[in-house]
Design a protein around this nucleic acid. Structure first.
Lengths: 255, 255
DNA sequence: GCCCCGGATTGATCTCGATCAACATTTGCT
DNA sequence: AGCAAATGTTGATCGAGATCAATCCGGGGC
């Protein structure tokens, strides 16, 4: 077998199979070198990427599943600051643990610890790959800015509506259907949105009662009234308080 | 004057004068080309970077002042998702306005709209410059993750304490003093932390009453009890609720 | 299949911070 | 400097969502 044959582990990995993702941008030689010097890892719910492991492998690329960044307060309160999913690349080189939360899997996660040396080399040489990782990091940052805005002033119902749209934006679209996958448990969702699981539950029920969405299961919903959900997400009080029961008649107050 | 003479506008700009920032990494030729194809801009409180202007100049480097990213809800509620300060570089190429808030100055801001072509060229050629902008974007992302965690579950007092530490981390250290500059108004601070100006005011007063900090003016405070403020920021309920009036005696519950 | 247990739901109560209102102070403009 | 408008502070009241408590699932292991 020639030195440059693409490894099976890479052929099975979405980072290579999806033409928009990082490994698909690499030349055969680059991919093989990166592959040889990198290590895949499977995690299950609750597993943590330990500091010690991260010191050696500070660059992590997500193949599938949902990895969370969690902040733990001293009295036990917990928050999820971010979700990382397929295609996301985390560069934790020189990130002091002061401003980095724990990285914890929220289900089965498969990821690849990339060799920092090869990563750096590819970043310097391969403009296409550089563009992909730059845009990925930029997306992560903008998603975080958005999320900060969402949880700062929005009410519970509005936060949940925004989150459903965030899921919709991130998932590969299943045709034209408004079937949205919710890839995390209620409890994680609550921690991400800064609310209690009880409140999340109540808000889902409220949206169902108003005919805005249907629960398919705990892990998926179908939006039955996209414009109305959008208005709630955008903080239109006349809708979110339920005063306008018929829905969608009132003219939007577009700034 | 030779073609490669460094322009006055660059000599006066901290992006060049501070050796850690972007323009200081460039060769004289690179700097001059970038300078020729870029445009400085001064803004005053309330000025907005318009979409139209950003379409032509999507890359913005902050020389000084505080620029905010604001999200406006339909009923008038407003949140500040992020602060951008000296050295921050915003790359808004291909960012749909859907997930980008308005960019509004919170005081006098001086910035430089960088030529995308030259920026891209420098990013491809100059490894040192590439490292600086990569790390800057990474800092922005991690700061946003942190901030999301802060505002999701923390109480008002805890959020304010965290914010004071955020200011402390970001400012160039004035010697060893615990004098912290608060570079934004109360009202902006409230929008950033997802609370009301009244609450911000009450929390500052509370921290003063407890002897944890002294207000020097609206724009600066001196921390007089750093460990206690840290415990509040970290969500130690025994402290933040004021039950432990003497402060600092109780043993920390480190997880 | 059955058991088991973490997660999800539902209901009742309470609290922190939002809101409203009045007043003080700072900032910006001429 | 002096005025007007914007911002900040203080006090009183109210409500959305946290908290507490009691079930109710659903899916993984044997």
């Amino acid at each position: 077998m020639p030195e440059t044959a693409i490894k099976d582990k890479c052929k099975r990995c979405m980072l290579y199979a999806d033409s928009r993702l990082f490994c698909a941008q690499l030349s055969e030689d680059e991919l093989c070198e990166l592959s040889d010097r990198s290590r895949t890892l499977s995690m299950k719910r609750g597993d943590t990427l330990e500091d010690e492991a991260l010191a050696h492998w500070p660059i992590v690329a997500i193949d599938g599943g949902v990895l969370s960044m969690q902040h733990l307060l001293q009295d036990g309160r917990k928050t999820i600051a971010a979700f990382f999913m397929r295609g996301d690349i985390l560069d934790l080189r020189n990130v002091t643990n002061r401003n980095r939360g724990a990285l914890i899997a929220l289900g089965k996660v498969s990821l690849c610890r990339l060799s920092p040396a090869v990563f750096e080399q590819v970043m310097a040489q391969n403009a296409k790959a550089q563009k992909v990782i730059w845009e990925n990091l930029r997306d992560q940052a903008f998603r975080a800015f958005d999320h900060s805005g969402d949880i700062a002033k929005k009410q519970a119902l509005e936060k949940l509506a925004s989150f459903i749209f965030e899921c919709r934006n991130r998932q590969e679209h299943f045709g034209k259907t408004e079937l949205i996958e919710i890839p995390v448990r209620r409890i994680d969702l609550a921690e991400y949105l800064g609310m209690q699981p009880e409140t999340v539950s109540r808000c889902f029920k409220d949206l169902e009662k108003r005919g805005i969405l249907e629960a398919q299961s705990l892990g998926a919903v179908r939006i039955t009234n996209v414009p109305l959900l959008r208005r709630i997400a955008n903080g239109d009080k006349d809708v979110s308080t339920g005063r306008d029961g018929e829905g969608g008649i009132k003219i939007l107050k577009i700034a």
